[in-house]
């Protein structure tokens, strides 16, 4: 039985259809990337899964229960780190738990330590670098009690090397905690490097153009990025996406 089930989701705003019959499911502990060009309705899909937007039709099911219009059912790492400037790093990572009910300070401190931020537990966000902020933001999601984590292009604002470091860090965190992750990105390489499966969205209205399994061995490291198989795979996806992305 699938963990998260996205069933026939369609969404339109007036005349404009944004999502058309989106169907996919995610298994327990799986890492799935949703790959699509900018403006392909990825954010809309996230808002629907997150329960803060109502789809025109369709349903979202998590662990056999509908979570349509139920905010707070999944954990969320936004595109910008969205740390609260008046909260210390420790209080920021505890926010997700706080909203859901109880704070577990000790686990939070352990995770901050594991992320190499133990010196910064009492620091305010403005004292952190971009990569550190993103790590704090992700720890906040992992600490939140929900079983599924949504990541919305979390590394898009980082430079190449920081991004690669962050991706590896994310993988190690995921392998350790085995939470299901839905990762949205427009970066083919990133999707390939991280996921078990890639779902390619077509352009407006978005529907699922193709689903692919990524079977590179885990744990993965940086060398994979330049291997022959990896680049071949990237080429294939690139062609697939290019075909549907007609020059405007």
């Amino acid at each position: 039985m699938a963990h998260l089930d996205v069933k026939n989701i369609s969404q339109s705003f007036g005349e404009q259809e944004v999502l058309e019959e989106i169907n996919f499911s995610i298994d327990q502990g799986e890492f799935v990337s949703i790959l699509g060009p900018s403006g392909s309705g990825k954010s809309t899909l996230f808002r629907i899964i997150g329960g803060i937007e109502t789809p025109t039709s369709g349903d979202i099911v998590l662990n056999n229960e509908s979570i349509k219009n139920q905010p707070g059912s999944v954990s969320y790492t936004p595109q910008s780190p969205s740390l609260f400037p008046w909260r210390s790093v420790l209080d920021n990572v505890l926010l997700g738990q706080e909203i859901q009910g109880k704070r577990d300070r000790d686990t939070a401190l352990q995770m901050i330590d594991r992320a190499g931020l133990s010196d910064y537990a009492d620091a305010y966000p403005y004292e952190l670098s971009g990569g550190m902020k993103q790590r704090v933001s992700f720890i906040r999601s992992v600490l939140s009690p929900q079983p599924l984590i949504l990541l919305d292009e979390p590394f898009s604002a980082l430079d190449e090397f920081t991004r690669t470091d962050m991706q590896q860090w994310l993988l190690s965190m995921w392998e350790e905690h085995k939470r299901s992750i839905v990762f949205v990105t427009h970066n083919i390489e990133e999707a390939l490097f991280l996921s078990d499966r890639i779902i390619i969205l077509s352009n407006s209205p978005a529907n699922i153009q193709r689903e692919m399994s990524v079977s590179f061995e885990r744990p993965r490291n940086e060398d994979l990025l330049l291997s022959h198989d990896f680049l071949e795979f990237k080429k294939e996806i690139y062609k697939e996406m290019r075909a549907s992305h007609l020059p405007s």
């Binding site: 803060i52 905010p71 707070g72 954990s75 969320y76 936004p78 969205s82 909203i99 859901q100």
Partner: peptide
């Protein structure tokens, strides 16, 4: 962005 995070996290009006 912060408001969006709070909504997604299921914050009540009071929170």
């Amino acid at each position: 962005d912060l408001r969006h995070y709070m909504l997604m996290a299921g914050a009540t009006k009071r929170q």
